[in-house]
Nucleic acid binder design. Structure first.
Lengths: 108, 108
DNA sequence: ACTATATTTCAATTATTGTTGAAATAAAAG
DNA sequence: CTTTTATTTCAACAATAATTGAAATATAGT
């Protein structure tokens, strides 16, 4: 992940609707959730949810697959991991101060 | 860190100038950097740097201390750590898939 | 007090994002 | 081939955020 990617992922995560969508999808696990279920879960209109879902998909944070009339979205765990890695390594150069604050064992 | 805090930290990190300021401050370490040095480092006007610095300070990501005529800013490692923790635990419920993607050993 | 330096604040402007509801698209069923 | 359901797209508008440069504040030196 480069700086440009990280900026757009941070931007995606800086909106309450989108952050909640991500949480809902992570909670749902690999089976994912339908677009309509997501809209209901985060209390958004279908068009608003769709708008946010597409920006999330654009950054690689989630992906989608059509299943007949519906669309299943699911979280991309790797992408979230990459963001954490970017934060720890690129932004913070594995600063021990940061690592200890987030309960990450120092063995790398 | 709660959702509201996380949203504002993500928002702070979603701007290139601010992300670079954070990197510069983390790189500078505990001694920090003067406001003017930061502006130069990230190629911003003093007023633009000051504007961004204050939103960063508001979210707790950095802190400042006046030293005679100048102001020294430094990164708050703990706050960054809290954000990573929020991402891993609250957003991702310590999903092993996420942890393995960011090279974090599984021992918790 | 006066001047110089470092930084912040403010108001005006511009740019970017988010919301809404209506129309469009896609797929399935009658 | 018309209707129904699920979702997306679009255009208009509203809300937020960023940039600029000038003025204000704070501190130190003369």
């Amino acid at each position: 992940m480069n700086e440009e990617n990280a900026l757009s992922v941070f931007s995606v995560l800086s909106n309450a609707t989108r952050l909640r969508i991500l949480k809902a999808l992570v909670t749902a696990g690999d089976k994912g959730l339908l677009a309509g279920e997501i809209a209901t879960a985060v209390d958004a209109t279908p068009s608003r949810a769709s708008f946010h879902l597409s920006s999330m998909a654009e950054t690689g944070l989630i992906s989608s697959e059509r299943q007949s009339r519906q669309i299943i979205y699911s979280a991309n765990y790797e992408r979230i991991g990459e963001l954490v890695k970017y934060l720890l390594e690129d932004c913070c150069q594995n600063s021990p101060a940061v690592l200890s604050c987030c309960d990450i064992p120092k063995a790398k």
